[in-house]
Design a protein around this nucleic acid. Sequence first.
DNA 1: CCCCTTTTTCATCACTTGGTGAAAAATAGC
DNA 2: GCTATTTTTCACCAAGTGATGAAAAAGGGG
Lengths: 236, 236
Amino acid sequence: MTAAKPSPKAGARAGGRGRPSKAKGLDLKETILDAAEGLFARHGFHGVTTRQVASEAGVDTALIHYYFGAKRELFDAVFLRRAEILNQAREASMNAYVAAHDPATMTVEGVIEAFIEPLLRISQDGGAGWKSYFALVAQVNNTPAWGGETMARFFDPVVHQLVETLKTLRPQAEYRDLYWCYQFLTGSMMLSLSETGRIDSLSEGECHSSDLEAVRQRLFSYCAAGFEAVIAKGGK
Amino acid sequence: MTAAKPSPKAGARAGGRGRPSKAKGLDLKETILDAAEGLFARHGFHGVTTRQVASEAGVDTALIHYYFGAKRELFDAVFLRRAEILNQAREASMNAYVAAHDPATMTVEGVIEAFIEPLLRISQDGGAGWKSYFALVAQVNNTPAWGGETMARFFDPVVHQLVETLKTLRPQAEYRDLYWCYQFLTGSMMLSLSETGRIDSLSEGECHSSDLEAVRQRLFSYCAAGFEAVIAKGGK
DNA sequence: CCCCTTTTTCATCACTTGGTGAAAAATAGC
DNA sequence: GCTATTTTTCACCAAGTGATGAAAAAGGGG
């Protein structure tokens, strides 16, 4: 059991006497996270070695442990880095939708769009790092061993916000139905965001998994119609 | 490069002079596949060692290589074993639906049910092995590195059958829309079949991911309504 | 320039990995 | 029992694994 973490003190960054200055180290820290993110997204946690990460980042293996400790802690750091940004964007989007509409003009599709749209936008405008990140989340989402726990830890609050908003919009809906529909939604959404290329070969070039605009044009109405159908059918 | 595979001749099973008899070896082969299936499903390809598989199956490590060759070949054998059964069941189900209805009484929901229902039934009645298998497929489905290629190799034909059937049922629908809707459907379906337990904690006990009856009661109408909405919206 | 701290590199450890070749055991026809 | 074949075990390898401790380099403050 390692008593004291060998990583550097949180406050101090670089240079002498504990004063932050050039923050050169931080650049490397981000470089390592970027490299790890891309590799973990492609090959999963166990499919990547710390040496691969170090090589990709152009640093020594030991530096990874210096900054992040064990390999699993590196993975958590990768996962955490963008999770907070993501949650804030989604929360803001849903709050904005609720604020911009009075209850009468709110629609299920509008709420769902407010829930999903931030992810599509970030994936389209955020660069390769975000693409990798979404692929990583999709993989974790389907990992029985520790996926459920990890997803819950990072993403439960915003999901509850979605469910509660839908519940106020459709008071007669059962929570059971809303949770199941959310599961269907998240399965579709994460598979689309992970851009596996499967639809490209399946459709023989008719569709491209990188075409998130096509996803946007279909996923919102698809999910909304699904929700309404399940709610309408009710308990039975 | 290993010129000749060290695995046993396909025809010969056990005992002397190349005559099959007790087929004791086959039992072990299945035992190894079962062990590998469960472990791969939980931890992924790279998260499992051949020694773990051997230990779980109660055999020597070398025996795995004797029967299956390299680790990756073992994985493919695991994947292939049930894929064929699955495809036959789904094909039969869809053919039966088409045969039992004239075009006027066929519905999108009926076709989708014929496509999904066999998986739900097999998962419910097939035992732990099938549960593991579905979790494994879900994981592969979200694996960018070789997931798309693997899924295409094993499952493309039956998907094309679904798309073509829907196309005859809704001739005005664009193939683009059908393929995207299929992607949404498969994301929902695979996540539900993998039973990650996430919905259990998310819903605070209201739903259980093992409750495939609940999935059955909602997924068909959810997807059918989604399809109809996307088709109705058409190209724009 | 000296001192103190942080960052980076180097060499290495203890252990695990997938995989193999040869010996041993089992199996069955004669 | 003998022989030919298949199945199973055993000992082992070369390469790679995550991780570490100590030395070296870099970076200010005085």
